[in-house]
């Protein structure tokens, strides 16, 4: 919500700045400053060990962007990244998929029934306020160190954004449209299919975006504390061996994955929302 508002505000102020006659620089200024600050950060970071003599202890914990890039390259070139990446990805994928399979129908159901909604509301409020991480030791106790404890942690992390957004979208369904399809003899199933779900789609996709972030967090944390392999395990072990460049490589892979998935969801959203005059900002 705040994000889209920020974007709109940014657009508004850039329009103000781009007064007629003021040229190229004003159009590229935001991008130039944005990229510039990232580049500047990387350069300063790279130069620190060359300009300042770091103590031996600090050096142990220090890496530079060029080292990280080299390590990333090595991890992919030798192929040693693929096994942990695959393990993490399967836990992530299965958990997220499960959360969609469960969260979507459940959200529709709760959104359509006032009684069910009133009954489940305390549980949703409680679980949504609580960091789901608190269940990690319990999940590990139940499911052990394998794939499935990871799947379950990802699942309970990603479930609530999907469930809550679906339910909000469903509750927002236009009463008139529901009456329209009912007047043509629609049953509850038709109402869900024809009105409720399409109407909730923007909300569901916003929920999916949130869920991706939560799922990545779930994978990372689950692997830190209870896993035999995966990217997170690789990172913990590297941290123990002071291979800071490997830790950052893992971080970057996670970041790129989560950004790429979010971008994919955004593309999906654009394809699904041709019918909308303006994009709904959730």
């Amino acid at each position: 919500m705040s994000e889209s508002r920020t974007i709109k505000a940014a657009l508004a102020s850039s329009d103000e700045l781009a007064a007629p006659g003021k040229s190229l620089w004003h159009r590229i200024e935001p991008a130039a400053l944005g990229i510039g600050s990232i580049v500047a950060l990387l350069v300063v970071w790279e130069l620190v060990p060359r300009l300042i003599t770091l103590s031996a202890g600090t050096k142990l914990f220090f890496t530079t962007p060029s080292q990280v890039a080299g390590t990333l390259w090595r991890l992919f070139a030798t192929g040693e990244i693929w096994t942990p990446l695959g393990v993490s990805a399967s836990g992530f994928g299965l958990g997220l998929l499960l959360s969609i399979v469960v969260g979507l129908p459940l959200g529709v159901l709760i959104g359509r029934s006032r009684t069910l909604n009133d009954m489940i509301d305390p549980f949703i409020t409680a679980f949504n306020a609580t960091p789901r991480l608190v269940f990690l030791p319990l999940v590990m106790l139940w499911l052990g160190l394998g794939l499935w404890s990871k799947v379950l942690i990802v699942f309970i992390g990603a479930l609530f954004p999907i469930l809550i957004n679906t339910y909000e979208g469903v509750r927002n369904a236009d009463k008139v449209l529901i009456n329209v399809v009912r007047s043509f003899g629609a049953k509850e199933w038709d109402i869900a299919r024809l009105v409720v779900v399409p109407n909730a789609m923007p909300y569901i996709i916003a929920g999916l975006r949130l869920a991706i972030g939560r799922a990545v967090l779930g994978v990372v944390v689950a692997e830190f504390f209870g896993s035999e392999s995966g990217l997170g395990v690789m990172m913990v072990q590297a941290a123990g061996r002071y291979q800071v460049d490997v830790v950052f490589s893992g971080l970057i892979i996670f970041a790129v994955l989560s950004l790429a998935l979010t971008a994919m969801v955004q593309i999906l959203e654009q394809r699904l929302s041709r019918w909308r005059p303006v994009h709904v900002s959730e």
Binding site: A10, L217, V220, I252, A255
Partner: peptide, 16 residues
């Protein structure tokens, strides 16, 4: 200057 940087930081699972 800071928007993209913050977005990248935010998208990164810093918990890692």
């Amino acid at each position: 200057a800071l928007d993209p940087l913050m977005t990248v930081f935010y998208a990164t699972p810093l918990v890692a």
